[in-house]
Design a protein around this nucleic acid. Structure first.
Lengths: 317, 317
DNA sequence: TTGTACGCGTTATCAT
DNA sequence: ATGATAACGCGTACAA
């Protein structure tokens, strides 16, 4: 591998001059600049990024800690990050954690070891305090709401309120909800919105997948007291719920009104009533926060959710 | 930042000994090892990975060049890569290219600049030869079939043959196909399988999204000569096709039989007949190829596709 | 405008 | 078993 010293020798200049040419610095005579360019060409020189990183103390790389690379909404956030990082000439490393704490730890280690300049936490299992103790090593931005933390998030409380309000407008009073991981920040906010307005309690927890939605359907069918509408925590769960009910001969929305959450392709395909979340936007903002100068002030950005009227809700009669 | 020199001073040993302790090398007296450990603890030392990378000439990082982070099957490949890389204590950098050649180039540059040890090309626009000219800088593995290249791929020819055979068994003779990017390796293989057995030509090109599927539906409705069955290039296209037809009052599969491709959640939800591809497996194999010692032999791995009988095909009468 | 010399933090070589 | 020292390749005070 040829290095800048070789170039300097070839072009009859100092390594400093070579470095200046490489980085488009001013104060280089045109002929010397030319000489360096020719040397680069002749020797087939290619800059070693690792050396740049060591010398500058920066990697121009952000880390992303997220549970699953291939779950639609995590992937959508990742796509937003990818786009914003690209625009800023940054790269990103991804840690797929499966919500396993030891895996999450590896992303934190990378920050401490200066492998990444900043870390975006899309979702996590580790206690917040454990993560925040790594802020000394670099910026950490969350895609979930937490107090006193740099974050970009959607207000799940308000989003769920929108859904509940719609159902109540349609005359539903016996309303159920599906939650994902029961203790997550999101679930707590959703539950909060729910308990404020709903008398009967139909809470289905630990629902994450299409299959979980089908399970909810089976539980619903066996219940004596049934809600007439269910607000789910994701379009996936809603899809599983809807399709299982229809398979068993029930009508959706005739027998049960269902609202999804995410605004995914699934919702589009099933013409589902849902609450759309601009996940890519969350990712873009998250990246932009990592490079913001006033990050110490721990700015927070709330992105809006959008109620989408579909065909899976009917008025309750 | 405290470094190994500080540790050496604190523990009264040489930097070499410190390095040995750090890397669990033999030939270190227990008491010295202990002294170093204590110094690490006391000074709060954390290893700088960039320096390790520079010194070893490796980054333990692979690059992934792929068009879209959030398209389901690309994300599924990425998830396989993430998993295999994790198992091997590797990290991965992702370049989302949108099929833009200048973006793809950045991933190649990263390989040349030793920012990554190897590159996985999930899909690309650049000419193959342009990519292969970077093999001098490190291993390059493809997730598509090309001659004389390290690759893991599915045989689109055989996969499409399966679908066509099924339709013909069901009595269909007037069969259409949807293709994605018309000149991609995959499309050519698919077209090949198609033209071998089908008389009438109903080829719908440039179909990639759900919306494209709806467009195909509108074209189909306007045709005087119509195929009785369509083999699509993705579940997305099939979903758009099916839903638009149903919206317009046509029966699927009554008026048109449809076969998807991918085996995605969409297919599951619509109970679609489709051809399932183990995308995560492709990703895993791709990563494993990058670290294989006999990579110079340019090994190729073919992964099998699976025909999934659903409810979107009826016999032609 | 240019160059010298050193620092970045680690691993590897080679001698002892 | 241990250590001195030379890489690794680049950026940058500082001096000229």
């Amino acid at each position: 591998m040829t290095n800048i010293r070789d170039l300097a020798r070839e072009a009859n200049v100092s390594v400093t001059t070579v470095s200046r040419v490489l980085n488009d610095h001013p104060y280089v005579a045109n002929e010397k600049r030319q000489a360096v360019r020719e040397a680069i060409e002749k020797l087939g020189y290619i800059r070693n990024q690792t050396a740049v990183h060591l010398s500058t103390g920066m990697t121009k790389t952000v880390g992303v800690m997220l549970p699953f690379v291939d779950h639609p909404y995590h992937a959508a956030i990742l796509q937003g990050i990818a786009q914003a990082a690209f625009d800023a000439s940054y790269r990103f490393l991804t840690w797929q954690t499966n919500y396993v704490e030891t895996h999450e730890q590896l992303a934190l280690d990378a920050l401490a070891q200066q492998e990444i300049d900043a870390l975006i936490v899309v979702s996590h299992s580790l206690p917040l305090s454990a993560i925040l103790s790594y802020e000394q090593y670099g910026p950490i931005v969350f895609c979930e709401h937490h107090e006193d933390v740099a974050a970009v998030y959607i207000d799940h409380y308000t989003a769920f309120q929108q859904g509940l309000a719609h159902l109540r407008q349609q005359g539903h009073t016996s309303i159920g909800i599906c939650l994902g991981r029961p203790d997550s920040t999101n679930s707590l906010a959703r539950k909060h919105a729910y308990q404020e307005v709903v008398r009967d309690e139909f809470v289905y927890e630990q629902t994450l997948t299409i299959e979980d939605g089908a399970t909810v359907a089976r539980r619903w069918m066996q219940q004596k007291q049934r809600p007439t509408a269910i607000l789910t925590a994701s379009d996936h769960v809603a899809a599983g719920l809807i399709l299982e009910l229809r398979k068993q001969g029930y009508q959706v929305p005739g027998d049960l009104s269902v609202i999804g959450f995410d605004g995914s392709e699934l919702a589009e395909v099933l013409a589902m009533t849902t609450i759309a979340i601009p996940y890519a936007t969350i990712g873009r903002h998250a990246f932009q926060l990592t490079v913001r100068e006033d990050l110490v002030a721990r700015p927070q950005i709330e992105v809006p959710s959008t109620f989408i009227a579909g065909t899976t809700v009917l008025p309750h009669t």
